[in-house]
Design a protein around this nucleic acid. Structure first.
Lengths: 245, 245
DNA sequence: TTACATTTAAATGTCTGACATTTTGGGCGC
DNA sequence: GCGCCCAAAATGTCAGACATTTAAATGTAA
């Protein structure tokens, strides 16, 4: 009989899975060089293109990097925070965009997570974080700012707040939630009045951090969540009535 | 944010990036069929293997699925929560394993996130979640349980706590933090005394949820974090002195 | 001996062409 | 009308070749 493998998956997926498992469980160490494509092909008894497809799958997950030339090849890659951020954000954005996640649910999750790091941030914040936050607040108060730039600044502000906790694992988790909200936030048209309100709340948050007052920070974040929710619901309602016309 | 497609990258990476952008920004709808490999090859002016490598990259990120046969081809895939969990956990585990994240940092992040959903969980918990948590507590109190099973039960308990918040976005974010801690937690040998302590804290948490007492839940989680940290530090100290021999 | 230019080998990146496998749909015979 | 078989279309896989890149090895001149 033919080699009907127990797994239904493709050969390339099997090979990718085998190598990934070796990386995850530590058999392959960071910066270790994998065998060449020709050697892998012989080892798994498949052709080189199949091995290549498997390696591309791993490269797509940032598990390996490849270098050309002599002494090149595929190497186990140290997953950096930046790459992990990127993947996390892509996944989270798609998850929100494809699964009809309500604005309320996304908003609740985001601010719950931000409140989680607020107490830590109040304890650890340093002048740099405060300076970044104040700078973004200043930018948000500029009259001529486009909605998109306002949202960008908002993201930068919140990431500074998260980074102030000084915990990269926390930053990693939070980055996905904050950035994935971007497409939803971009739907909102910020009036001068709502910007003023948001700038005020951002100032309260920053002041609380500066004063190392965790309770005040949490309260301000609650207020910001409530206000964001109000704005979002307004947009949803307007959109619904437009769609019904 | 600029487009991720850089001209420096490989051809297959460029093509994968172009298609990914089309999916992320909504140009390609869920379940829409992509052109066949031959058509894509002509469209991008590359050969079929190159297109295939690009498609494998996307398949590795669960962005597309492929079907063979007459009406087969590549289709945009609806990213499910389960797949997103899986990717998130893989990435988070690698991030912790490869970057010398300290037990303290991981522990702090995890419990901060859990405390974030505690208030929501106290408001929304239903009898099913409480039953799951009680069942796991009962299991954890069994004398003959292996350390590994104890850890598994611990994960199940905490995921029930997170799921009790009834917010899938929050569950998605938390799953990564809780599961990624597993390898670190597995290093700990739980004595009968420490298990008793943990079971007691788990009971306090469950009682707080049942009583809808957010403050008590938060306090208990703080205590559990402190105790977990103590255990972890003990293991680290023992390991360090062994390594110095 | 040292510094620099050149060669060379090893590996990935890409292409061409072919064949195998799987699935659908329609034609053909009964 | 029903069922069987075959063709078409698409992906999965393979084989071989050539192009490109990179760093080490080698040769040469000051």
């Amino acid at each position: 009989m033919k080699t009907r493998t127990s797994r239904e998956a493709d050969l390339s997926a099997q090979i990718a899975g085998a190598i990934r498992d070796a990386i995850v469980d530590g058999t392959l160490i960071v910066d270790e060089r994998l065998p060449s494509e020709a050697e892998l092909a012989e080892q798994f008894d498949v052709s080189r293109p199949t091995v290549r497809e498997a390696l591309k799958r791993l490269a797509a997950q940032s598990l390996i990097r490849t270098a050309r030339g002599a002494f090149g090849g595929a190497f186990v890659r140290r997953l950096s925070y930046e790459e992990a951020y990127g993947q996390h954000i892509t996944t989270a954005t798609l998850l929100l965009g494809m699964n009809d996640v309500s604005f309320e649910t996304a908003c609740e999750a985001r601010y719950a997570l931000e409140r989680a790091c607020a107490p830590i941030a109040t304890a650890r914040r340093d002048p740099d974080h405060l300076a970044t936050m104040r700078a973004e607040i200043h930018r948000q108060a500029q009259p001529g700012l486009s909605d998109e730039s306002f949202c960008d600044s908002d993201v930068t502000f919140h990431r500074a707040l998260v980074d102030a906790a000084g915990n990269p694992v926390l930053s990693y988790q939070l980055a996905g939630a904050v950035e994935a909200m971007q497409p939803l936030m971009n739907m909102i048209t910020f009036t001068a009045r709502s910007r003023e309100e948001i700038v005020g709340l951002h100032t309260r948050i920053t002041d609380a951090l500066e004063a190392r007052d965790a309770g005040a920070a949490e309260t301000a974040l609650h207020a910001l969540e409530a206000y964001t929710l109000t704005l979002g619901r307004g947009v949803m309602a307007a959109r619904a009535s437009n769609g019904a016309d």
